[in-house]
Each structure stands twice: as structure tokens, then as C-alpha cells.
Design a protein around this nucleic acid. Structure first.
Lengths: 347, 347
DNA sequence: TTGAAAGCGCTAACAC
DNA sequence: GTGTTAGCGCTTTCAA
């Protein structure tokens, strides 16, 4: 075991002073080539690693990125953030950072955790997921000039982004889904989503409505809002498939809803519709294992890429130095990634 | 923002010395009641939090628990470890620890990460998942006297456990599953598992075989081994359901296999068997979202409890002081938890 | 280009 | 029961 090799050991081994070793590690360009090599050899040979705690005391930087791990609420959609988390851990490691985990029941609890974490571990940055309208977490961090990148847009914020963010273009996703169904000959394509007010849900609904209109179909009456759950989805889907509306296909805001829609489709007589015998098309969102298992066409989010992009933006932020509290107006980078449609039996 | 409140600030505010503050925080019993209150009030008022980096430099303890986040290999079973991870994060926080994440492709890479982590962040302990025969990770850590708790037994180790561990009793789970099917009137109950040699897989097979024998049924020829995957499961299941063996029910080592088995069951004519019209019973393992979505009876692991138990064992380990490299023979605590059968349509 | 000195915030000794 | 001293390993002045 390389038990506590310090900078002093390396210095002795290489025949230089402690400071020179530090220079080699932090500002190599200031050290003569030959000295640098000798020091680096010693580092390798002794298996030296900088001690983060000591470095942190001097520099105030922990090389830690804090992020939340969510409970597996729904079960179906839960896997999305876990995949993001894996990507984040990997990308962070490549950039020389580690991921520190925390849990929180709600925004207020999360802010309390921020305070805790900042006092104790001093993470260099936070990666926030699940942004929403009036998100108090981002404003709390921004007020204190702390580096943040969110996976999710700053919903409901009027103008320029107040912080760096990465997101997946939900509207483009549902638009692609709707187009796919139009191409298959469907016209009365319904939408199964969440109540208005959730940024993500509204965005996904918009992509569907826009595409339907462009195809000359009036989306009015063709959508239903419900809470996210298989049974809720089934109930709502039944309404859309039933007489009156008689949708022949459904674009859904999640795989949970899509699974419910599929259940509804199976128990609904499609023969009474205009297209006798034609199977009802269902498309979900997130391309979860359940969608794959059941054969639901779904929209896949590039989660590894999203995570890697978060880290890229973060390092840019951190290298640019800490930003003062009131520095609004400067352009914060943001990246909108495209989901891709994974076609399966359900369409 | 509570910007850098140090122990000196608290001391000044409370009218005591820095050391007294430290005593209140670390050895409260040595400080007079009144002084303690005064100090704690000052702590509250100033929003003071001990700085981990500084504390770590003195004590050598980071209050960090390192664990791996796995890539979502299969998609279906992946959610299991993520739920464990959430439980671990929560339990760790309650015990005053934080979870530090890393990824690793294989055991060798994981050990390299250990070295990295130990040099830089000095985690107090490691929680290892996915233990297997001849696991070099545990021995590496144990050789260096580093605290470890594994979620998973030390498979293939002859005698007393070489370290603390928590596991779920897979054999008891498949035994319960088999019993459930026997109670439903099945006799030719097959087992779909993985090739011999994997501790987890063998354990689960054993529970099935044992229970079948106890019921007077010879398990010979009633099991198939395959790699973990839906299609593999379907192929293997077809063999067991087909003429020759004609199993009427299948206990599976995972939900992936169970899903495959269900596919096979649907396309197999059960009428030619002894129990015409009787549906084929399928039971999976892990109670994943997919099992729930598809309606597969499955064995649920108490993951939150497993995680909490890991933390309990860990804190016991850490409070007991670091254990010297050669201290074998002392009893390492271990806990075997029971899975529970979640009955659904598939049985 | 390299070395010497100081100190980040904390706690383990020891003296008061 | 409380205060003083020292030093964990590192980097950031500043001087050589």
C-alpha cells in the first residue's frame, strides 16, 4: 500500500525542494524540462497522489460535484436519472472530479442540504436535475454565486438563461413521434400528458400539437392530462379511444402513460373506428426497460451525452473562476440535445 | 450565505477558546453544561459547520463512503442497484457520511480506482456490490486493512466471513417461489438460471432444487442455464416447456429470464400437457418495474434495508477503529435478509 | 528557475 | 474544565 506518500517524500526522492514538486504538479510550464521529468518519475515510482484535503485547505477547491439521487418514484421512469448519474460519474472522473451524492425530499430540503454540503465538503459545483417553474434551488445557488449546471431548462424564466443548462428537446421528440404516426397513415393522433404547468410536460405536448396542426389536423379535444401512472394512463387513454374522439394513435409524455395506453388499446374495439382492424399506435417517452420489454415505441434521450455535456459546461464554469453574485447578463452556455425515436411493435 | 464561519468565530462569539468549541463538538461530555449550551447557541447563530477538509487533515477521517455505480447492462435488472444506492445515500447521510461515486469496467479497474481514491479523497470505507467467487477487490482492501462491507456474500470462501457483509437470501426466495407453485398444484416446476459458478445463480438454483426434492419431485433435467437476457430466457424456456420435459411452471433467476419465459409460455401449447388449459406459471427475481408492468410474479429484495444495514455495519467497523491487516479470525458481522414474493398474474 | 516561510481550519497533546 | 501549542499536506507569497 502506498501509505501516505507526501510531497516531501517525492521531493527527497527527486532531490528537489517540496515547492518544486508542487510546481511540477500545478504549473509545469514554470519548471525546467529535466527537473520536471525527474519529479514525475519520482511521483510514479512512489505512487504519489495529491491529498485532496490538504489541497482543498489551500485552494478552497474540492474537486467534488454534488448531485441528487432520486428515489425510484414511479419505477418505470426512474431509470432515466440513474443512467444520467452513471454518465455524470464517468464524465466527471475524466475531468478529474468526483460525484458526491445526496438525497432530498423536496426543494426546501435540498437547499438545506446545499448549506450542509457547502459548510462541510465544499463541493465545487452542483448539478441539478428535474428543474421546474419557479425553481428555488437554482436561484438559491445563483444568489450565492455558486456554480450550477442543470439537466433541464430554466422553465418559465423570461429571457436569457440565468445559468448553464443541458436539456433534451422534448417537443422535437413528440413532433418526431407524431410525424411517425402520420406517416403510418394515422390522422386522429391523441396526446396523453400531464396537467399544464409542468415545463417538461407542456413542451412535449407542444411538439405534438404543432405537428398535428402542420398536417392539417386540429389537435383540439385530442389530448388528456393526468398524473403519471400506468392506471391513470389507461383511464385517460380509454377516453381518447372511445367514441366521440376515437383516436387511432396516442403520443404519450412517458412510458408509464404509454403502458397504460397500451392496456387501454388492447381492451378497446378498434374495429368500430374508421380503420377497421388497424392496430392502435402508441408511443412513449424515455425508452425505459419497460418500453423495451413490452415493445413500446419510445423516445430515447441521449443521457450519457447529456451528462458529459454537463461536465463540459461545469469545467468551463470552474476554470473561468467563481462568478460574482450579481453578474447577470453574461451569456450562459446551454445545449439542447435531440432524442431519437426507437420504433417497436406498438406502432 | 454563511461564508466561512470558522471555529474561531464561534469561540469569539461564545467567549471561549477555540479548543473548547472543538471539545463541545467532539467530546461534549468533557465540557460543562452551561459552556456547552453557550457554544452550541453560537454555532446555531452563526450557522457554523465543521470543515471536513480541515478535520480530515487532523483525524485522517473523511466521512466519505465510496461505492460504484454500475452501467445499466441489462436494462431490466439494472434498477436493483440503483435502488440500493439511493438507500445507501440516505442511510449514510443519517449516520453523518456522504457517498462518493465511481465507475469501473472490471475488478482490476476498480482496484486502480481504489488507489486513486485512497490517495486523493481518503474515503473511510468502501461498499462493494456484485461480489463473486475469487473476488480480488475484497482481498485487496482487506490486505490493506481498509474497512469494507459488501452487499453480497463472500462467495466461495471456505469458513468464517473475512469481512462484514449483507446479502439477500436468494435460495430462500426461490424456495418460496417453488413452494408457491407447488401449492398452486404444479409438479414439474423448471428452473431458468445462469451457468454454474456464479454464487448468486447457484444459490438461487439450490433453493428451487431443495424445495422440489422435499416435495418428492426429482429436479434432474428440469433446469436450464443460459446468459441473462430476454431472448436467451425465451429459448431456454421453450426447451423446458416442450415435449420431453414439459414443465408447467418456471422459477427464474431474474426478471429478464422470466420475461423471456413468459414469451415462450405464450407461444407454447400447454394443452398437450397433463393439465390442459392450465396457464404456465412464471416467477422472476428482483421485482423490477418490468415485472410489475408485465404482471410477472417476482421476488422483491429489501434493498433499502440492505443498504441501511450496510451502513450500520460500517459505522460499527469505523467506530471500532481501523483493523490491522492480519487480524483474521475475529467474527465479522453479516446479515442475511429475506426477499418477499410479490404475486401477480403470471402465477 | 528553485527554495524558505506562512498558514488554510481543525483537533490531539499537554499545561493551566 | 479550559486555554495554549503544534502540526496534518498542501500551495501561495516572496526572496534567492
Amino acid at each position: 500500500m502506498a501509505d501516505k506518500v507526501t510531497i516531501a517524500d517525492v521531493a527527497r526522492h527527486a532531490g528537489v525542494s517540496r515547492q518544486t514538486v508542487s510546481n511540477v504538479l500545478n504549473t509545469p510550464e514554470v519548471v525546467r524540462e529535466e527537473t520536471r521529468r525527474r519529479v514525475l518519475d519520482a511521483v510514479d515510482e512512489l505512487g504519489y497522489r495529491v491529498n485532496q484535503a490538504a489541497r482543498q485547505m489551500r485552494t478552497g477547491r474540492s474537486r467534488l460535484i454534488a448531485t441528487r439521487i432520486e428515489p425510484d418514484h414511479d419505477g418505470i421512469n426512474g431509470s432515466v436519472l440513474d443512467r444520467f448519474l452513471h454518465g455524470l460519474t464517468e464524465a466527471a472522473a475524466r475531468a478529474g472530479y468526483r460525484v458526491l451524492l445526496y438525497t432530498a425530499e423536496d426543494d426546501a430540503a435540498e437547499i438545506a442540504t446545499f448549506e450542509d454540503l457547502l459548510g462541510a465538503y465544499e463541493p465545487d459545483a452542483f448539478v441539478l436535475t428535474g428543474t421546474h417553474h419557479g425553481d428555488i434551488r437554482t436561484s438559491w445557488l445563483l444568489d450565492r454565486g455558486l456554480p450550477v449546471v442543470t439537466f433541464g431548462r430554466p422553465w418559465g424564466v423570461p429571457d436569457a438563461a440565468p445559468h448553464a443548462w443541458v436539456d433534451v428537446d422534448g417537443a422535437a421528440g413528440t413532433a418526431a413521434a407524431t410525424r411517425h404516426l402520420l406517416d403510418a397513415g394515422h390522422r386522429r393522433i391523441g396526446f396523453l400528458g400531464w396537467p399544464a404547468g409542468s415545463g417538461v410536460g407542456d413542451d412535449r405536448r407542444e411538439g405534438w400539437a404543432r405537428t398535428l396542426r402542420a398536417a392539417g389536423v386540429d389537435p383540439a379535444g385530442l389530448d388528456r392530462a393526468t398524473s403519471d401512472g400506468v392506471d391513470d394512463g389507461e383511464t385517460a387513454a380509454r377516453e381518447l379511444l372511445a367514441s366521440g374522439v376515437r383516436a387511432t394513435a396516442l403520443v404519450c409524455a412517458s412510458d408509464s402513460l404509454a403502458l397504460g395506453a397500451l392496456h387501454a388499446a388492447r381492451s378497446t374495439d378498434t374495429g368500430s373506428g374508421g380503420r377497421a382492424g388497424r392496430p392502435i399506435g402508441v408511443i412513449g417517452f424515455d425508452d425505459t426497460p419497460v418500453a423495451k420489454a413490452v415493445g413500446i415505441t419510445s423516445l430515447s434521450q441521449p443521457l450519457a451525452e447529456a451528462a458529459a455535456t454537463c461536465v463540459t459546461l461545469l469545467t468551463r464554469l470552474l476554470d473561468g473562476g467563481p462568478r460574482p453574485p450579481g453578474s447577470s447578463g453574461d451569456p450562459h452556455p446551454h445545449v439542447l440535445l435531440q432524442p431519437s425515436l426507437v420504433v417497436r411493435r406498438s406502432t
